[in-house]
Amino acid sequence: MAERLKETWHQFIEGNHEALNDLYKQHYLGLINYGIKLTGDRQYANDCITEILLALWEKRSRLPEVDNVRSYLMSCLRTLVFQKFRSEKLRETKETIAHSLIVQEELPYEEYITSLQTDKIVKERLQQSLSKLTERQKELLQYRFFDNMDYDEIALKCGISKRTAYNIIYDALQKLKTDLSREGNSDYLYSMLLFFINFIAIDQFLR
């Protein structure tokens, strides 16, 4: 995974058009979420990401090879957004965004994703379910799914092994799944179905 990201970056520096699109796709999720967190506006965040990639593309021949492309792009995005906020003109026009910036920054991950839910029941259930998770679990869920880090990066950041990182996330997902699935009835049906399919598979195998 990390190798793939590095290779795309390398191709980007070499001026490969495809790599430009790939770079966007590979880092979209991490960057857009970070951008939304900083600016409070998805479209505006996407404009900023585009602006950064455009600037990098223009000076691509002078760019270094980077080990962690994700965090490199993140820091570019942060710099750009802060630059924009500092500029006098934007401070006036984007006041609302700047305001939400402060609000967003204060929201922890679990509250942020809960606030995005529109369905009241889902919202409550999610809130309850997330509150049962440990801080570590929530932290790793954010790294993996919201920041779009891969397991290597998470392991490095938390000073744990990749396996441990994987297990923590897996356990958290299992808990969430059970809590969020309606009544657990559907799960029962689903395991029956699995059993039945296995049965057919074994049956076929025995023949």
Binding site: I32, Y112, L116
Partner: peptide, 19 residues
């Protein structure tokens, strides 16, 4: 839910704008 409501739809819209 976990990724902050970023669906395929939002990605494609943003990717088009980028392109």
């Amino acid at each position: 839910t976990l990724n902050g409501n970023i669906s395929a739809e939002s990605f494609h819209k943003d990717f088009e704008a980028f392109k």
